[in-house]
Design a protein around this nucleic acid. Sequence first.
DNA 1: GGATTATGAAACGGTCCCGTTGCGTATCGG
DNA 2: CCGATACGCAACGGGACCGTTTCATAATCC
Lengths: 209, 209
Amino acid sequence: MKTQQTAEGAARPAGRPRSEKADRSIIEATLELLGEGIGVSELSIESIASRAGVGKTTIYRRWSNKEDLVVDALATLKPPIPLPQGGTVRDDLVTYLRVIQEETRHHRTRCIMNIAMSDSERHPRLAERFRQLAVEPRRAVVAAVLRRGMETGELRADLDVDMALALLSGAMIWLTKWSHADASQADLPERIIDEALKGFRSRPSIAEP
Amino acid sequence: MKTQQTAEGAARPAGRPRSEKADRSIIEATLELLGEGIGVSELSIESIASRAGVGKTTIYRRWSNKEDLVVDALATLKPPIPLPQGGTVRDDLVTYLRVIQEETRHHRTRCIMNIAMSDSERHPRLAERFRQLAVEPRRAVVAAVLRRGMETGELRADLDVDMALALLSGAMIWLTKWSHADASQADLPERIIDEALKGFRSRPSIAEP
DNA sequence: GGATTATGAAACGGTCCCGTTGCGTATCGG
DNA sequence: CCGATACGCAACGGGACCGTTTCATAATCC
């Protein structure tokens, strides 16, 4: 009845242990396929198994359905380092948008973003994963920058941080998706930030820096 | 060799004419399925035929591939009446975002938006259709409002109209997609507009209205 | 009526994928 | 070595669609 205890104290079941290498290649194959534009609904277990060099059995033994597998796979994506912050608030925000813009250049990133936008509708757990994986870290970083600006007086003290994040991120995504102009415009981040900083309303005769 | 000329001058081919009713039900069935969350890649000709009460032959006779059919189907979507404009620029912009917010409540609209965002990556002709169908009309309407504000002095004279549209629309989409808070917040449009109008930057002691 | 074309239904062979099972082999604990 | 479990592989029966073809019927022109 006695089973060997691992260092972590988990009960070690008898027999051949599961291959961590198989785990990794399954996850990696899943991410590869998603990154090539395969949507969750088109993603087939067989294609994953084939890509990973693994039997279907090995996959079914670990995940009972596709959504679970995709959720786990996405969990391994590391949020890209978001921001070297240090300059003025404007500079930091520009840098932030530049990172997004650069990410958007990669086909893989665009595919993942598409999954986040679309498949989340039918898979709430995916949506939650994306929120905590991609949205929340960025929100936190930008919020820190904005709050710093609010303290130094560079920004309005009553700024709505969530609203500001939505304006900036939303604008970047919208433009890269729908702008007629070449989306690779180098000055897009600056233009977005400056419009957002200045605001649309006219101001009675204040010299702009 | 002679063929009868219709009133429009088009050559009338011999034999039974194609059923316009079939045309319509095919298009309608396609939009129904897309509106239920079926993505373009999952959309099957057989399901369309079945839904439309039509033989597959009838579909294949008119469209040689799925993308063509979807493009034609989307072309029949009328852009929702965008804006009763009349009040202040702020009021008109709030109304504009309210329309978007209201549309987003409908599951069908969200599905169509998802297709616009995701499937456009793989189907450039779809992207183009969406641009001229949904994006451009809105851009035009909002641009008109903004320009009016620039003329009356309510808005900055050097406002970047495209950037402003991106900020507003992008923020709305971003928030309805990723906001933790209840997306049906009634005051979302006002909050977006006001942040955008005021701008993030602090202003040296100017009383806010 | 006769020629011509369209229509819905059904069936075709073919492909892809499903989720499961059996097989021979590999890797663990005891 | 032995029992237990995991492995990759191949095969299973079953389902969904593909794009095409055949067929009896319907609509239009002459």
